[in-house]
Amino acid sequence: MCSKFIKKELILSLLMFVFKRGMVFLSKNDTEFIKLIKDLPERFSFLMTVRNTNLRVSMKKSNGVLIYAKNQKEFDLILEFSNLCSAFLVFAGFMPQYQAFSEHRLSIKGNISDALCLTDAINRLQAVIFPDIISKKLIKEFEGSSLKEKSLFAKFYLYALLLLR
């Protein structure tokens, strides 16, 4: 899945773009998602990067919704993937975040309970954009009915997958 024939960097930048767009969209429109990020403090900021690359996603919470934080220098929470392969596995939905963390593929700098909050929100995003068969594998168990109700975002995922071949 992490073969050298795949242009991981290119696909990752696309997946990260989908991720960013998805997070912003859900923070405005998805009641489940809004509930999950409620506990994050206002102006909370986070950065996701891949070690030794320029790939990055930076976002912050502003007026209750998530927005891009392009020029931000300091972050409350930094999630760093150990290499392209690790980031690819997670962003493409092949590996759950908790597993990446447990295998030292993903390091967390900052407050752990904020990281847990964000993880739940990302899980929700993945439940929305990925087909059931994938998102079920990514999430240990879901509280209530979060796995139901899908949206058109699934299209983005299929688009990215097509590019893999």
Partner: peptide, 17 residues
């Protein structure tokens, strides 16, 4: 409890229930 980091490494999720 549901915001405590220890549950990350548990096989079963720590849901409210």
């Amino acid at each position: 409890a549901t915001r405590d980091g220890s549950s990350i490494f548990s096989k079963v999720a720590l849901t409210k229930e």
